[in-house]
Design a protein around this nucleic acid. Structure first.
Lengths: 336, 336
DNA sequence: ACCGTTTCCGGTATCGTTTCCGGTAAAATA
DNA sequence: TATTTTACCGGAAACGATACCGGAAACGGT
């Protein structure tokens, strides 16, 4: 049960502790034979360098922290996998915390992670939180942080995000090209940075194609299917139905479709629906859902690589990476 | 940038290191006033105890490891959230690794985690792997491990799992009670422990209700929607369609439904479909999917609590917790 | 034979904490 | 008043590794 330490190995072979250490980190002078002998007996004795001790003496934990709003949905799960792939290859452990969309919890998580001495942080902020001041303070103190996904363009820090404006524009334009005349955008939370950008993209498409102001609308929903359903219910109640709906995400879209169908409204014959942030479900529902795919995996990888560079001081200036996606038209948004 | 250490605080107040240490872990003799003074100035100086050093001297990392097959789907995500809730409340960090359903990667992850000195492990094994010997060796050496979800009943270790037999039985019985006569079970991977149990539950229901052997079938699929689609395609090709289908999970069920619908076969009018391991999607698809809900969150919490007890030596005998679920009948499996 | 350069290795300080041990002074007891 | 407790505190030894320093041996060239 007792752990084998470097001393035990040294004593066994009558060599010094230093020699054993050198054998394991082969950057120093050591004779090939002694090195091999040491490694061999260490193996036999079941010795491996104690990572905690290593962390202490090097003042590095080889841990990084990731704070996301949630990872129930595949979006952040996939991002995390991208991050893990990069960092595990470098021998790092990735600590994951979720803020449950609450800025207070996010801040608490960040502080916990910093206190547990992670070498760097990747943060996907919740709503546009007051936490930014705190993060910027840490950044200025030289702490490596990369922001991800829900970030302001103007933020003075390394960041990776999706070009929401552009792809919301494309999605909206697609609906216009399909000759839908009344288009509503179910916009998620308006206070979310990504929402603001997508609304802008949506409006830009409306303007470009000279859709009159009274023919489109931006309606605040939430992020959940239930909230999509609620909005549709309200619209039905108010006899205020458009002929096309563009949704903040696939969940909202699926909620909307379900509610429309249960009211005998056909998709896309009566009303077209377009999702966003494509999920695996798009092909499995009827009608198949048009959506914009985000490169989740790449977002994680890019953020991780930026952070890794920052940790190793090979990145001097904050860098921004803006990612593009893919618009796939399926059944839910086409005229027959 | 330089970290404030216990020494700095001690020097500042002209007290000994020990006193500062005592102030932070209030189990030793220390005068109330000195303690408060120390804590106050420490706060001012921005000092907090270096967790790494603490880990080293206590020979504990306050980290635990969790190895799951994947966390793209909500099932394991929710379990992980349950685990995190318990351990974060005790000041632990949770390290998450995924095996991508591959036993080799699972073993590699477990070894990495053990080498990084986690205080305990929670493992949701992939397929019935040869790794068990290794795990049992570690268990016998006194290493705290709790198994979860995909476990053999007979395993001599602490474990938490869902009563698959029972609830597969209930699900199958429901289909029988709806007067479906030909029932096929799309069984996931047959080598999976949970599969074996669900098959047994399924067959038990068939036997109890004296369904003739030629009227039911167990077909191996995988875990993915695409694999459900593939099986349905084969059945259609072979003109071998039952009047009810029970699926290993909701993904397979949704794949099956999609394929049936695209071939003009109506669900549930022509063929009923039943899922398992309920997902959030059940209410959003047409028809709404009947399924068995597993208490994912509780599974995580229970596993975590077992592990926590093991770590603190307050659990002498391995303990087994078998969880029950909830069968919700929706549109996909009822006669009109 | 002499010297300089490599190659190899051991000793020791250091990292930041906890914990054990011992000591002093005040308080409680006889 | 004399003696024993108690409360409080400081010193120093772990914990397990790495980094630095300096010394010894080996080697090759003149």
């Amino acid at each position: 049960m007792k752990h084998v330490t470097i001393k035990d190995v040294a004593k066994r072979l009558n060599v010094s502790i230093s020699s054993v250490s050198r054998a394991f980190n082969d950057k120093y002078d050591i004779k090939k034979e002694t090195k091999e002998l040491i490694l061999k007996t260490a193996e036999e004795m079941g010795y491996f360098p104690n990572p905690i001790a290593k962390k202490l003496s090097q003042n590095k934990t080889f841990n990084i922290g990731v704070v996301v709003p949630e990872f129930i949905n595949e979006y952040y799960s996939e991002i995390i996998i991208g991050i893990q792939e990069v960092f595990m290859a470098h021998g790092y452990q990735v600590l994951i915390a979720q803020s449950d969309e609450k800025p207070e919890i996010e801040l608490k998580n960040v502080k916990t992670l910093i206190h547990s001495m992670v070498d760097g942080l990747i943060i996907a902020p919740t709503m546009d939180s007051g936490n930014m001041e705190y993060y910027l303070k840490e950044l200025n103190a030289g702490y490596p942080i990369v922001f991800m996904s829900r970030v302001k363009e103007t933020l003075e820090a390394s960041k990776v995000y999706f070009n929401n404006k552009k792809w919301a524009f494309f999605a909206a334009e697609h609906l216009i090209r399909q000759r839908y005349k009344n288009i509503y955008y179910l916009a998620g939370y308006k206070s979310l940075n990504v929402s603001i950008d997508r609304i802008e993209g949506f409006k830009r498409a409306m303007n470009k194609h000279k859709i009159p102001k009274e023919n489109y609308k931006v309606i605040e929903t939430g992020l959940l299917a239930e909230e999509g359903m609620q909005v549709i219910e309200d619209l039905i109640y108010n006899h205020d139905l458009p002929d096309a709906i563009f949704c903040f995400n696939d969940r909202v879209a699926m909620g909307a479709i379900a509610k429309l169908k249960s009211n005998g409204i056909k998709v896309p014959e009566d009303i077209a629906v377009m999702g966003f942030t494509e999920t695996r479900m798009v092909d499995l529902i009827t009608p198949k859902l048009s959506s914009v795919k985000q490169p989740t995996f790449d977002m994680g990888k890019n953020a991780a690589e930026l952070l890794f560079k920052q940790i190793n001081n090979s990145l001097m200036e904050p860098q921004t990476i803006v990612l593009n996606g893919e618009l796939t038209i399926r059944e839910s948004s086409v005229r027959n």
